[in-house]
Write a protein that binds this DNA or RNA. Structure first.
Length: 899
DNA sequence: GAGCACTGC
């Protein structure tokens, strides 16, 4: 097939598309509001004036700031800045409030407070008066408590004033129980408002104002507010709930469909799809785009030609649950007209017209049908998440669209990236759908926090003591952090005794056994409060109802890849602004929420990147390159990536594939390479399997491959039973067989025990991981048949198994040095055996490792001893005699290491 | 004698 670049869209076409795009967006606006063109223009003019005023004020603020020292992470500096800045901040606010009040008094609110058709209500007017009153109180207070006028972490309070824990909480408790503490409440409310950014159309004006004050650059946020705005009536929602109870299920579903924000745009949407081949859809969560769009297209006849509509999701559960929902709405059985396709599970049939699938699955389908003949529409949903698969799909799908004018392409995203997507797809029009979201108040700290963990704990307790009921979600970086936080929180809650309501602490991270994970979904008992300590898993992957408060320390662990050394590392890094918004949004899913960020507004604006770099730029590309080669794409450097990965990473991947003999000297796919591409695994693992044919041990090798690809979550190691867990693990390592064979033993023992769950508990092994390994193994066994490799067992010949491993992993070899550390054979890199390895204390002379991770040192994980001469035997093109001789001439005391 | 964010095929 031909996937080479076809001629680019001509300038005329682009121009026409742009015109169309404007028409579509404006027609959407027309249905939303009934303003005439003149009004629209007037509004624009007004907005422009406001913007200019903002810019002027910002400029003056900036010149003032230039004389101030830059904020740093140390407290003493921060305090200085605090005093310096407070004056200007306070002055500004006061001036602004006064201005607003003046305007109100002048009676020009009718004109002045019109924004997007929303007039300032009476309540808002009173709100402003209320604020003024607070100001009066505050300005009197100021002389006494000047230092306390800002939102500040109680910890800082401690440092300054020497107020101890009990004292603070006794104050908090007083307030908690005393409804008359109005002034305090009022003051706090005011503090909250000051640093608040709200979502929702009614608050649009406020968004601009507040934002303009807190941040340096407001452009992003004005857009966010525009994207959001829809009049969303809670009561309407309640009425809907009631009506649902009355009428029949199907009727209710139909009613519900009509209530979705996308419903009024149905016809325009269908027209846009009809007129354009590629369409970028922007819609917030809850707009109904994922469930409705494929149905609309189906109703409009896009499936009449016997072709399907595909909708891709980044996650398996999403694909499954959305498909289930849609089949319900359409009144058909799941798997018939509506189906889903995910790894290990193909729930589709001959009848299927709407197919929900994971993005990786569609990528696999490309291998079978490079022009996607069986689809009439492809919708890439959640495109803003930029997973590895979506990024590759973009390039492929863009190319297929050129070859197949009848194929419709929908790219759906929830963020401000829409224009980027549009530009990438030759200025495709953008179709906006309003979302449905509750307002979220965002709070920043006044001063930078040195210890975010402690700050998170203190904030949790503070919320618990002072805020109305509602669960708390805390974002932490990893398992260890979650465990320590849990301990400290429990300890502090014990210290508080029965004076305070119960706090239920629920940790959640991916490696947590499923039965413990279920705890977070249990409803919170009356009078208690739940605090969920989560990793990034709660950012996108799972939604927890009832969250009202989010605490965001602003960090997460991110995988980075160094193409030069080929080393992956997990580093704690500051999150991006997009990520921070996502986290904040988790508090506003079932009602208005609050988000407490443990960093300053200044660092949000200046230290955080706009977006997290897409995965494709920070990962090992070996698999990607193999897939693309298999699709016939020869020129990878010029492949149309939306964000091209580093050239070094592509080169490294090509080199590796060449070394594994998946590619020939000309860079063309070899027969081995084609076989390898059939396996949904890393090329080194695939090579190991393909090579097992030669050593007649494919049965064992696919077990090892399955175990290795489920990763490091096989052994469960709870903090309080570490010794037991370690002992259980070492049972599999008897005879210094190496970690690969130990994995095989684990798998085989589990199998011999009839895949028993009990056996897993006894051996501190995670059942979920083992089941996953079994699924992968079954799939691999099926694929062996496909590439015509016989399933042969050779369980007693460890050397044969190790040689198969060597065939895939020979570039990952290291040998022992005199000082007891290892050095990679082909690099000057010093490495160590990870302490969790069974060989950590054995120190064999020459080893292969599965992966290299950088934590406190460069550690090799999953290590197996090999004979140096195997390297020459198996990879003569990669190693020469010198490499191997070096290792044997390395003067080691006899009898040490290699037995 | 250290320490594994999250997906997906």
């Amino acid at each position: 097939m031909d996937l080479r670049k076809r001629s680019r869209t001509s300038a005329v076409e682009v121009e026409e598309k742009e015109r169309e795009f404007k028409r579509i967006t404006s027609s959407c606006n027309e249905t939303k509001g009934s303003e005439s063109v003149e009004e629209e223009l007037l509004k624009d003019q007004r907005e422009k004036e406001e913007l200019e005023q903002h810019l002027r004020e910002r400029e003056s603020a900036r010149t003032r700031k230039l004389t101030e020292p830059k904020a740093s992470r140390t407290r003493s500096n921060a305090e200085d800045i605090q005093t310096l800045r407070k004056v200007s901040r306070h002055e500004y606010l006061k001036k602004r409030e006064e201005k607003k009040l003046q305007e109100l008094r002048d009676g020009i609110e009718d004109e002045q407070y019109l924004f997007d058709g929303v007039k300032l209500s009476e309540a808002e007017y009173h709100d402003l008066r209320h604020k003024k009153a607070i100001y009066d109180v505050l300005s009197k207070k100021k002389g006494l408590e000047g230092a306390n006028n800002e939102y500040k972490m109680p910890e800082a309070y401690d440092d300054q004033r020497g107020v101890n824990q009990e004292k603070r909480f006794s104050v908090a408790m007083q307030r908690y129980s005393d409804p008359n503490a109005e002034k305090e409440e009022v003051w706090e409310e005011h503090q909250i408002r000051k640093a608040t950014l709200k979502f929702g159309s009614k608050d649009k004006r406020q968004v601009c104002d507040d934002y303009q004050f807190v941040f340096e650059d407001q452009i992003d946020f004005i857009k966010a507010a525009v994207m959001d705005g829809d009049k969303f009536d809670y009561e309407e929602e309640l009425a809907l709930e009631k009506s649902k109870a009355k009428s029949s299920v199907l009727e209710a579903l139909h009613e519900e469909r009509k209530k979705l924000p996308i419903y009024p745009f149905r016809d325009e949407f269908l027209k846009a799809v009809h007129d354009h081949q590629v369409l970028v859809i922007v819609g917030e969560t809850g707009s109904g785009k994922t469930t409705q769009i494929p149905q609309y297209l189906h109703e409009a006849g896009y499936t009449k030609n016997g072709r399907m509509i595909a909708c891709t999701q980044p996650r398996r559960v999403a694909a499954m649950s959305v498909a289930a929902r849609v089949s319900q709405e359409m009144g058909v059985k799941l798997g018939h007209e509506v189906g889903y396709s995910i790894r290990f599970e193909d729930c589709t049939s001959e009848k299927t017209v709407l197919k929900y699938m994971t993005d990786g699955m569609l990528l696999r389908e490309f291998l079978a049908q490079p022009e996607l003949e069986s689809y009439s529409v492809v919708m890439v949903d959640e495109a803003h998440e930029r997973t590895l698969s979506t990024d590759i799909l973009f390039g492929l799908v863009k190319d297929v669209a050129r070859a197949r004018p009848d194929l419709k392409l929908l790219i759906s995203s929830a963020t401000l990236d829409a224009e980027k997507f549009s530009n990438y797809f030759d200025c495709a029009p953008i179709f906006k759908i309003p979302g449905r979201r509750y307002p979220v108040e965002i709070h920043f700290t006044k001063a930078p926090e040195a210890d975010y963990l402690d700050a998170a704990i203190v904030t949790t307790l503070q919320i618990h003591a002072t805020q109305p009921p509602g669960d708390i979600l805390v974002f932490l970086t990893g398992q260890e952090e979650i465990e320590t936080t849990e301990e400290i929180l429990k300890q502090r809650m014990r210290g508080l005794g029965t004076k305070i309501a119960e706090l239920i602490i629920c940790p959640i991270y991916a490696n947590l056994p499923t039965e413990l994970q279920a705890k977070i979904f249990e409803p919170t008992p009356e009078g208690a409060r739940k605090v969920i300590l989560a990793t990034n898993i709660a950012e996108t992957s799972l939604t927890i109802d009832g969250i009202k408060y989010v605490i965001d320390p602003g960090f997460s662990k991110m995988k980075c890849y160094n193409p030069r050394t080929g080393m992956e590392s997990l580093l704690v890094t500051p999150i991006s602004k997009a990520s921070a918004m996502q986290r904040a949004g988790r508090s506003g899913r079932t009602g208005p929420g609050k988000c407490f960020r443990l960093y300053t507004a200044y660092s949000f604006q200046n230290d955080l990147d706009d977006n997290t770099p897409p995965e494709i730029q920070r990962t090992n590309l070996a698999n990607v390159v193999l897939t693309l080669k298999c699709l016939g794409i020869e020129d990878l450097i010029n492949f149309e990536f939306m964000d091209p990965p580093p050239i070094d990473a592509i080169k490294k991947a090509l080199e590796l594939l060449y070394a594994l003999s998946a590619l020939n000297v000309g860079g063309k796919l070899t027969k081995v390479g084609r076989r390898m591409a059939e396996f949904p695994l890393d090329p080194m693992l695939s090579k190991m399997i393909v090579a097992s044919e030669k050593y007649k041990c494919s049965d064992e090798v696919i077990s090892i491959a399955a175990m290795l690809s489920v990763g490091n979550s096989i052994f469960y190691r709870p903090k309080d039973k570490q010794v037991h867990a370690d002992n259980a693990r070492m049972n599999f390592h008897t005879g210094n067989i190496g970690d690969h064979i130990a994995h095989l033993k684990v798998y085989n023992s589990w199998k011999e025990n009839n895949y028993s769950t009990q056996w897993c508990y006894e051996n501190y092994i995670q059942v979920r991981s083992m089941k996953h390994a079994r699924d992968i193994r079954d799939q691999l066994a099926g694929l062996l048949e496909r590439v015509e490799i016989e399933l042969t067992s050779n369980s007693n010949d460890f050397d044969a198994i190790k040689k198969s491993i060597t065939s895939g992993y020979f570039p990952h070899s290291a040998r022992l040095q005199k000082n007891g550390t290892y050095r990679m054979v082909k690099h000057q890199q010093t490495v160590h055996i990870h302490p969790s390895s069974g060989l950590a204390e054995i120190l064999p002379r020459c080893v292969l490792y599965h992966e290299l991770v950088l934590t406190s040192k460069e550690y090799m994980r999953q290590v197996t001893e090999i004979k140096p001469q195997w390297l020459l035997e198996i990879a003569p093109h990669f190693y020469d005699l010198k490499d191997v001789e070096n290792s044997s001439s390395n003067k080691m005391p006899r009898g040490h290491g290699l037995a």
